[in-house]
Design a protein around this nucleic acid. Sequence first.
DNA 1: CTGAAAGCGCTAACAA
DNA 2: TTGTTAGCGCTTTCAG
Lengths: 331, 331
Amino acid sequence: MTVTIYDVAREANVSMATVSRVVNGNQNVKPATRKKVLKVIEELGYRPNAVARGLASKKTTTVGVIIPDISNSMYAELARGIEDIATMYRYNIILSNSDQNENKELQLLETMLGKQVDGIVFMSDVISSELLYEMKRSPTPIVLAGSIDDSNAIASVNIDYYGAAYEAMKKLIDNGHTRIAFVSGLFSSKVNKDKLKAYRQALEDASIEVDEQLVIECDNSYDEAIEAVNTLAPQKPTAYFVSNDEMSIGVIHGVEANGKKIPEDVEIISYENSKLARMARPMLTSVALPLYDIGAVSMRLLTKYMNGEEIEEKQVILPYRIEERASTKNA
Amino acid sequence: MTVTIYDVAREANVSMATVSRVVNGNQNVKPATRKKVLKVIEELGYRPNAVARGLASKKTTTVGVIIPDISNSMYAELARGIEDIATMYRYNIILSNSDQNENKELQLLETMLGKQVDGIVFMSDVISSELLYEMKRSPTPIVLAGSIDDSNAIASVNIDYYGAAYEAMKKLIDNGHTRIAFVSGLFSSKVNKDKLKAYRQALEDASIEVDEQLVIECDNSYDEAIEAVNTLAPQKPTAYFVSNDEMSIGVIHGVEANGKKIPEDVEIISYENSKLARMARPMLTSVALPLYDIGAVSMRLLTKYMNGEEIEEKQVILPYRIEERASTKNA
DNA sequence: CTGAAAGCGCTAACAA
DNA sequence: TTGTTAGCGCTTTCAG
């Protein structure tokens, strides 16, 4: 019923090998033969079976993508970067959500290796040691996208999260603030830990006492950010450094609900710079994360591993910038 | 180097068939044998090769997902619903962005069929006749998620877009408006055409003259929505029916920039009800689209096709509701 | 430039 | 309950 390479070979009076050659663009085929084969392929509606091909060649031209949650816009942006480059290199993507659950991550890794993916792009805020162990013994290359492995054992693409946070804090400090709140996402995330470190260091470097009451951990949501502002109110912060755009909008609404003006009374710097940053009122000054690029570069790096190319840089650090808008007073 | 079923069989002194049985949970294996095999599997670190399995069994336990753009939050939400149910049924997902480009869609379909996916979930605002033709001859089941094929030839999951739009318009009309603008996404999209139809019908049913100058087509973006408001200003609309939440925020900003108050001077009803609806000020009254559910139900429907189960309902219509918030005056 | 033939690793009758 | 044996559809030497 389904037409196979054998059917084509028979109809075209050539061997399977020859059909295989024309299908795979091998140049060692006489033009006339190629034409004849192509014609039969067309007539019969032959469609190469990628599974059989994968078994024979040990390459599936598909890569696994393990992502915390595709419905989270940050990850979706990363995923788009990954997919675009994958497509460019003729790979398909098996995409799975892990919800950052370690067991799921482990099991997903296993499943993808079982499916013989040629490579894996992995994203997670925390890389457990067991996960790291499994990644190291993976027969297939793995690269971390926007995710950090302290041991630097796995290839990765990131920005300098610490430096970006430090610079954001510096800007707030330079604007004269001494009561700066940090509304963070979960500290289980390595990136948020880095930001906290930068938060403290920037303050210390400016000889401003670090008040732990000004630091608040939430779940990255708009609602918790509003709550955070209320919790923080007694501390009278005059500026906020916020972990992402959605929370920043929560902070704006929380601050305005308390009758304060932005940026006159309170300044805010966000960290993400998604399109939300421009949709907020006032528009958000935000550390611009090149999410799409992180995804794209990760995938590009992975192709190099898959091709056995020389890798010049195993830990790629992409540049960031701070987009200044109306939530801060600018020079 | 990689350990195969044959290695396990040899080490465990059983046949490949027996190993295959225990790996696949076949009950026809003596417990003692099973245990022995499991032990060897563990020792050797045997991992079944899904590609070989796929070739032999003609099932890959993976489904293809063709989506316009995963970085668009509406589609990301759909995708999450699809993936969750796929996981529940032990399927993996090959995810590809089509950007609604017909050639890409066609080619993606071809690629996925080549990869021998067991089923496909397809999303697109427009289903061309060529695409429809190819879908009909697909050897593998296909279901449309949040997408419409006028001929009803392909299974699909949607809501009553027309009815939802009609109801939204009715609400605006009941609130006394006669100058209602419609800020729509592209009319190439079947869904937007339905909304337009409902827009007109609701007006006609209320004996309000339809003024085509009040209808404006944009690209679904925040920026174009702001522009639309300015373009519309001379028509003096007192209410807006808007195609999605992002555009609605643009409309809010455009309207407020012109010194009008919402909902006192101008009322707005959106269509999506993403988390943006609650993050807007005023919060948006919005037609609530059950995006996640559409994805989930689509995948569930697909599993039925893949299992050869009886399908009671080929065109599934899910319920919607209108979430009333502060952008309209409510009873 | 082309063909023959041996797998790739597994499933699924069919036997035993 | 277990083993034998064909394939699944294709790639890839190796000859010629």
